[in-house]
Nucleic acid binder design. Structure first.
Length: 370
DNA sequence: TCTCTCACG
DNA sequence: ACGTACGTGAGAGAC
């Protein structure tokens, strides 16, 4: 088996047998025995850090690193999904039935347990094989998957009112390309893939309150370059800068922030004397209205879709929610009805000035439906 | 039971 | 001088 092959390679290259799944043992092999990094960082409990980003930085020094990363990826897929999911099949239905928790996440998102169906793999080739296992109930049904496109950035544009970002969405531009053109001061047609990649990282980082340091780490660029990108970003999108300042000021005054539908997140540390602790509260404050408004929107859509299905006497079912996506199991002859009502309800859940875009796919399994 | 790591949005 | 990107859940190891 492939995992065993990587294990064998790792033992040969390390010159010692050990438990690769133990971060403690792995750290000692990499940094004490093999001395791959004399300045290796440790966790607060004194172990060496061996996370993916740390290992990737070591990849040039030893080819053991790639084996470890492959071993980790395959082990994760096997233990968390391939071995675990069949155990959770319900006897009667022969299906997995997740539990959606409505009062866990502090932003208003749902969470999912037993099993968690909100973290089914999609990013890697091997992971996508797992997603293929989620199939329609029979040959007469299909999976319908409906995704909000760039929902959090659209809500940043909506909530902040930033003219340039709103305009980009109104014109139907690719937001990362549009951002790259602005930040680098070039025409849309002259945006390179590197420029777009950097702009995409900034767009996401902004939603989380990322610093120049964080962006430089993420992109592997000098901190000064990251700082310049962020500076240009706020010059081009001044409304986003003021959203961030205004939101923090509101939180300092009121002790909470709120979403479009007035869901509150309280921030007890927003006025802390400790800059690190205060920083966490500030980033929570910037992010919560965005993430939480997206959660409000999809929840409203879910209620309307549920009512529509009932009123129209449709047989298809809404089966899953994954933060910006809804998944349905639908009889083939109801597909057109479903597509129409899903798109309408998702687009119009909350009245916005920024256009909301929904992408709908169909397939015999969840992967195909994307 | 806690820590580390990693799967997703 | 300091730490440095938000929200989750689960498996494995260590204690």
């Amino acid at each position: 088996m492939e995992i065993a092959e990587h294990e064998k390679q790792i033992f040969e290259k390390a010159g010692v047998r050990f438990n690769i799944a133990s971060p403690k043992q792995l750290g000692e092999v990499l940094f004490d025995k093999l001395q791959l990094d004399p300045k290796a960082k440790k966790t607060k409990t004194g172990q060496y850090q061996t996370g993916e980003d740390v290992l990737l930085a070591l990849a040039l020094k030893s080819d053991i690193v790639q084996d470890i990363l492959n071993f980790r990826q395959l082990q994760k897929l096997k233990s968390t999904y391939v071995d675990a999911l069949p155990q959770l099949l319900n006897n009667k239905s022969q299906r997995v039935h997740t539990c959606f928790n409505q009062a866990v996440a502090s932003t208003g998102r749902l969470s999912s347990t037993n099993p968690n169906l909100q973290n089914i793999p999609i990013k890697t080739e091997r992971g996508r094989e797992v997603r293929k296992a989620f199939v329609a109930r029979d040959e007469n049904h299909v999976i319908v998957a409906a995704d909000y496109s760039q929902i959090e950035l659209r809500l940043v544009a909506e909530i902040s009112g930033d003219p340039a970002m709103r305009e980009a969405f109104i014109q139907g531009l690719d937001i990362h390309t549009a951002t790259a053109a602005k930040v680098y001061g070039v025409q849309l047609d002259d945006v390179t893939s590197d420029m777009r990649r950097n702009a995409k990282a900034v767009n996401f980082g902004i939603i989380y309150g990322q610093s120049a340091f964080g962006l430089s780490q993420n992109l592997g660029i000098p901190r000064r370059e990251a700082a310049e990108i962020i500076e240009q970003y706020f010059i081009q999108y001044p409304g986003i800068k003021s959203y961030m300042n205004n939101t923090i000021a509101f939180a300092q005054e009121n002790g909470y922030v709120e979403t479009l539908l007035k869901r509150r997140r309280y921030l007890r540390d927003i006025n802390s004397q400790n800059a690190t602790i205060r920083g966490f509260a500030e980033r929570n404050g910037i992010n919560a209205p965005i993430q939480g408004s997206a959660a409000d929107m999809i929840k409203i859509a879910m209620i309307h879709i549920h009512n529509d299905i009932k009123e129209k006497g449709l047989k298809g079912k809404m089966t899953m929610q994954v933060h910006d996506e809804l998944v349905f199991d639908v009889p083939k002859d109801e597909v057109e009805d479903f597509k129409e009502l899903i798109e309408f309800r998702m687009k119009n859940a909350i009245k916005t000035e920024v256009p909301i875009v929904v992408e709908i796919g169909i397939g015999k399994n969840w992967l195909e439906a994307h």
